[in-house]
Design a protein around this nucleic acid. Structure first.
Length: 403
DNA sequence: TCTGGGGTCCTAGGACCC
DNA sequence: TCTGGGGTCCTAGGACCC
C-alpha cells in the first residue's frame, strides 16, 4: 500500500499580499510587501486590529491581531491599508479552483489555505516534491503572490511544515524528520497549542515540542484533558483529523457587530437584533437549513462577554419565529450594561428531511414558508430588503425604559 | 486613540429519567 | 435520620483556529 502524501498550501501574508497585488494592478507605485505595512481595521469604528503584516512590519515586532495603536507605537511610519473582504473571497476562489486541477481531493481549511491529498496521484514520490516546487512557481507566475507548501504523511505535519521558513518555500516534514525539524520549536508553535495550553505546559517544565514528545502522555492528559492527549499525539506527528470548515455541512451560523460607541438603549439593541435575525435567517433559508438553537452573545464596555441560548422542540428558519425568541432571550439575559459588541448565533442546524412539522400547525407553517421564500426572492432581486416583516420597522413598545 | 468576525470543539454542572 | 449510578440533554463559558 502506498503511503499517504498530504500537501498543505498556505498563502504568505494572505490579506497583505492580495491587497499588494491589487494595488500594483491599479498602478500603485510600491509593492507594499516590501515596506512596513499592515492590513488593519478602522480604528474610528473600533475595529482597530492588525489583520495581516508585511515581513518588514514583522521585523518591528508587529503581530497579527494586536491593536493598530500598538503597531503604530512599534513603527511610526507603518502604512495601513483597509481589508477588502469581497476581493479576498474572489481571489481565494480562483486560487482554490486552480489548485483543484492537481487533485479532486482538496480540502479548504480557511480563506487562504488548503490540504491536497496527493496519495492517489499518479506522480512518483520524488516527483511529488518536484511538483510542489512547480505549483509554487506557477502560483507566483499566474497570481502574483507566493505560497508555502508543506509536505508530509499527515495533515498536522504538513501544516507544521508549511509554517516553517517563510515566504515562498517548500518544506517536508516526514516522521523521520520531526526530531530534527520540529522538536526544537517552542511549544506554542505546535498547532492547537495556544496561549492557555502553552502556559500550562510551560508551568510543568515543557518548553519545546520535543519536551512534550518526551513527556508522559498520561501526565499531559491529566493537565489538559482530551486536548492534552491530542497535543501529545501531534508532537509525535500522529493524527489526521484536522477538520475542514468548508467541505462539511455548517454546524452553526453566527453574526456579530462591534459598535462605534457602547449602546445602552434597549430599543437600539433590539433594532440591531432584528436586523441580524433578518440577515442570518436568510442564510439559513438559502442553505435550506433550520435551527434548533438560538442564542445571543454580548460583550460589554468592560470587555466581559456573556451569552444566553435557547433550544426549541421544533427547528425553524422563519424570521417571524426567530425574532420572537430572540426578544425573549434578550429580555432574559441583557444586564442593562453598556454593550460594545452583540451578536446572534444559530446552532444545532438540520435540514428539512429530519425536521418534524408539528401536525396541527403544518398547513399554516407551509404557507408561511412559501411566503417567506417569495419575499427572499424579491429581496434578492432588488438588493436591499425592500420587503420586510412589519416589526422590523416599528420599534417595539418599551414601557420600562428607566433602569 | 487600545482590543474584529466567523467558525469548531470541549468541559463542568444542572435537570431529568430509570 | 437515609440519599446510588448511569445515561442524555441542555447551558454557559472558554480554548483554539484563521
Amino acid at each position: 500500500m502506498k503511503e499517504n502524501i498530504i500537501f498543505h498550501i498556505d498563502v504568505n501574508n494572505a490579506f497583505l499580499s492580495w491587497t499588494a497585488v491589487k494595488l500594483l494592478k491599479e498602478g500603485y507605485n510600491k509593492d507594499i510587501r516590501n515596506i512596513p505595512s499592515i492590513i488593519g481595521g478602522d480604528e474610528e469604528s473600533r475595529h482597530g486590529i492588525v489583520l495581516a503584516k508585511s515581513p518588514v512590519a514583522k521585523k518591528y515586532g508587529i503581530k497579527t491581531a494586536e491593536t493598530i495603536y500598538s503597531a503604530k507605537k512599534k513603527c511610526k511610519d507603518i502604512k495601513i491599508f483597509p481589508p477588502e473582504p469581497d476581493y479576498y473571497k474572489e481571489i481565494s476562489n480562483s486560487f482554490m479552483n486552480y489548485l483543484s486541477k492537481y487533485t479532486p481531493n482538496i480540502e479548504q481549511l480557511s480563506i487562504d489555505e488548503c490540504f491536497m491529498d496527493m496519495s492517489h496521484s499518479s506522480y512518483l514520490y520524488d516527483d511529488l516534491i518536484f511538483l510542489a516546487y512547480q505549483i509554487k512557481e506557477e502560483v507566483k507566475e499566474k497570481f502574483g503572490f507566493t505560497v508555502n507548501i508543506g509536505i508530509s504523511t499527515s495533515k498536522v505535519l504538513a501544516k507544521m511544515a508549511s509554517d516553517m521558513e517563510k515566504p515562498n518555500k517548500v518544506h517536508t516534514l516526514f516522521l523521520e524528520e520531526i526530531e530534527k525539524k520540529m522538536w526544537n520549536l517552542p511549544i506554542n508553535e505546535l498547532y492547537m497549542s495556544g496561549k492557555s495550553a502553552s502556559l500550562k505546559l510551560e508551568s510543568i517544565g515543557i518548553h519545546t515540542i520535543g519536551d512534550l514528545a518526551r513527556s508522559e502522555k498520561s501526565t499531559i492528559e491529566k493537565l489538559l484533558g482530551k486536548h492534552g492527549a491530542m497535543l501529545y499525539d501531534y508532537s509525535h506527528g500522529i493524527s489526521n483529523d484536522i477538520k475542514s470548515k468548508y467541505d462539511s455541512v455548517e454546524k452553526s451560523l453566527s453574526t456579530s457587530e462591534t459598535f462605534k460607541e457602547d449602546i445602552v438603549e434597549k430599543n437600539k439593541l433590539i433594532q440591531i437584533l432584528y436586523k441580524q435575525v433578518d440577515n442570518l435567517s436568510k442564510s439559513l433559508r438559502k442553505d435550506k437549513l433550520y435551527t434548533y438553537t438560538i442564542g445571543i452573545s454580548f460583550k460589554n464596555s468592560d470587555f466581559k462577554t456573556y451569552s444566553k441560548q435557547l433550544t426549541l422542540d421544533v427547528p425553524t428558519n422563519s424570521i417571524e419565529e426567530i425574532s420572537k425568541h430572540i426578544i425573549n432571550i434578550f429580555n432574559a439575559s441583557w444586564k442593562n450594561d453598556p454593550i460594545r459588541n452583540m451578536g446572534i448565533r444559530f446552532s444545532n442546524l438540520t435540514d428539512k428531511k429530519s425536521r418534524q412539522l408539528s401536525i396541527f400547525n403544518e398547513d399554516r407553517e407551509l404557507k408561511t414558508e412559501k411566503l417567506q421564500e417569495t419575499m427572499d426572492l424579491i429581496n434578492d432581486k432588488y438588493g436591499e430588503s425592500i420587503i420586510r416583516q412589519a416589526n422590523l420597522f416599528t420599534s417595539p413598545v418599551e414601557k420600562d425604559n428607566d433602569n
